[in-house]
């Protein structure tokens, strides 16, 4: 019997799986699901993983100002990071700036934050899209905050490895520069995913059903992970992990 879980718990469990073996995972601001997934991965790593959460005073190792995260990434001291996008396209370009022509965007978003840098330098960047629709997953982004791939010769140890959405998990093939469907969440068909995706993608040889969090994962998420998230994400910790699904 599988236990009842919340959609956010499924995503945190997927994220944790993608972080296996990482020694230092950094999580940007306003990212409760990546933070929860990273803390779950840390629980399983038995002391071999550091997690830095921006916006947290407790879960951070940085003491040298705002630049330290970026300097740290440029030196290869950060193995995994998360990015999202108001738009993400089939080449893994992300747009955090605006819809319509630049600079007078018809719809303006906050801005690119550190994406244009960290996407190049962190080996394992996991893209997270909370709304899997043709509005967000598009053929071509209106503005490239950070490109998914770079031409040969451009220094780029980093880049996307996966795109996690509320419907499925895509892997990203850097050489081919495109996404491939790795697994569909329970209840999602390949046809339905295609219908909701604005870009072309290939299929893995065997598209799996995304593994759901088991009893042990749920116990950790609702226990030690929830406690660790309390400080930076009190509402999320309380409302998503604070009660049984």
């Amino acid at each position: 019997m599988s236990e009842a879980y919340r959609p956010e718990e499924l995503l945190m469990s997927v994220v944790a799986g993608l972080l296996e073996g990482a020694r230092h995972v950094a999580v940007g601001a306003i990212s409760p699901i990546p933070a929860g997934g990273a803390l779950l991965a840390r629980e399983r790593a038995a002391g071999r993983m550091r997690v830095s959460i921006l916006g947290s005073e407790r879960h951070t190792f940085f003491t040298d100002g705002g630049r330290e995260l970026f300097d740290c990434a440029a030196q290869g001291r950060i193995d995994a990071f998360f990015l999202d996008g108001a738009q993400i396209d089939g080449s893994a370009n992300i747009n955090l700036v605006g819809i319509g022509s630049y600079p007078r965007s018809r719809v303006r978003f906050a801005g690119s934050f550190g994406s244009a840098y960290l996407y190049f330098l962190v080996p394992r960047v996991i893209l997270v899209a909370h709304e899997h629709s043709r509005r967000t997953l598009v053929d071509r982004v209106d503005f490239v905050s950070a490109p998914g791939t770079s031409p040969p010769g451009v220094y780029r140890p980093g880049g996307p490895v996966a795109l996690v959405t509320d419907r499925c998990v895509f892997g990203f093939d850097r050489a081919a520069g495109r996404f491939s469907l790795s697994s569909a969440h329970p209840g999602q068909s390949v046809g339905a995913i295609r219908d909701k995706t604005g870009f072309e993608f290939t299929l893995d040889d065997a598209v799996a059903t995304t593994a759901v969090p088991g009893a042990a994962a749920l116990a950790l998420l609702r226990g030690s992970v929830r406690e660790a998230l309390q400080e930076a994400y009190p509402e999320f910790a309380e409302h998503v992990l604070g009660q049984a699904a």
């Binding site: 970026f70 018809r106 719809v107 550190g114």
Partner: peptide
């Protein structure tokens, strides 16, 4: 920004620090 009454020079965090 949409109305064009303020000019935005989009940057990225480490570029401003640098």
């Amino acid at each position: 920004v949409s109305a064009g009454t303020v000019e935005i020079r989009d940057s990225t965090c480490p570029a401003i620090h640098a």
